[in-house]
Design a protein around this nucleic acid. Structure first.
Length: 275
DNA sequence: CTCCTGACCTGAGTGC
DNA sequence: TGCACTCAGGTCAGGA
């Protein structure tokens, strides 16, 4: 499910609800998701006060006081967080992790495929965490520039589509927004990453930024699983130009959108507009 | 290092 | 209805 815009949408919704709230109860129905969860997870959270949730790539990070720990959350492919004003009447079979806040609200993390993950780390030492240490730049930060992209793509033999999905280069892009950004930049997903230099990176950087920013404004893209914590869907589906539109007419030239399998994943592009 | 494949897991959709 | 099969917004481990 979630790429940067969906995760950011979730983070934004969590912020006013969690910030300053004490965790009164933790409900955990299994001791592993993608990997084994910290043994002491429930105990480490109970009684803690939530700080401001922030985001790194597709991870949500929630600082806790007074322990000085941070809860790391990854939604995997099918993870979703929902907020309820009081304890839900029924928990679903995939509601693996829930938290009751002091004001009675509930935070419920569900993840049917269990590719998501939860972990605890020391606040301030995020960069040392194995899942975060190798991550590339935040595409919405000032560190993301044509010069950066030129540098990290240099000499790469893989297709640009595959390179943009590599979280060690850029943090947060996924299958939808890579296709959309490449369309916006007029670059073929088949082009070798190492050949994307100069004018092409100068188009690609703002294309990625604009795609992500607009998707965040729309509340993300709801194709299957994505819901915002309040239950609203994300409306960026209506703005998708190529993703999932195989055979449909390109919004610019009206020639058919093509599907392309690269690195085991489907991508979409307009062979006429993207070179 | 880089690059590619398989693996993890459930559910929805499709075709017979 | 049932069954077999494919596919899905992620990403890690292992091998070439």
């Amino acid at each position: 499910m979630p790429e940067l815009p969906e995760v950011e949408t979730v983070r934004t919704a969590l912020e006013p609800v969690l910030h300053g709230q004490q965790i009164s109860t933790v409900r955990l129905t299994r001791q592993d998701l993608r990997w084994p969860l910290p043994r002491n997870l429930s105990a480490a959270l109970t009684g803690q006060i939530c700080g401001l949730p922030w985001r790194r790539g597709k991870y949500i990070l929630l600082p806790l006081l007074p322990s000085g720990k941070t809860l790391l959350i990854h939604l995997g492919m099918s993870g979703a967080i929902r907020l309820y004003p009081r304890q839900p009447a029924h928990f679903g079979k995939h509601d693996h992790f829930s938290v009751e806040l002091a004001d009675g609200q509930w935070f419920v993390f569900s993840d049917p495929r269990r590719f998501g993950h939860l972990d605890l780390l020391e606040s301030g030492k995020e960069d040392a965490h194995p899942l975060l240490s190798g991550m590339g730049v935040e595409p919405l930060s000032n560190h993301f520039s044509p010069a950066y992209l030129d540098r990290v793509l240099a000499a790469r033999k893989q297709p640009i589509k595959t390179a943009l999905l590599d979280q060690r280069l850029i943090a947060g892009l996924g299958n939808i927004y890579v296709s959309e950004a490449l369309f916006r930049a007029g670059i073929s997903p088949r082009r070798q990453a190492g050949n994307i230099v100069g004018k092409r990176t100068e188009r690609l950087v703002p294309a990625i930024r604009a795609t992500l920013t607009e998707a965040i404004s729309a509340g993300g893209t709801s194709l299957r699983d994505h819901v915002q914590p309040g239950g609203e869907i994300g409306y960026f589906v209506q703005n998708l130009k190529v993703y999932g539109r195989e055979g449909a007419g390109c919004s610019v030239c009206d020639k058919p959108i093509k599907m392309l399998r690269q690195g085991g994943r489907s991508g979409y592009y307009c062979p006429n507009c993207q070179r």
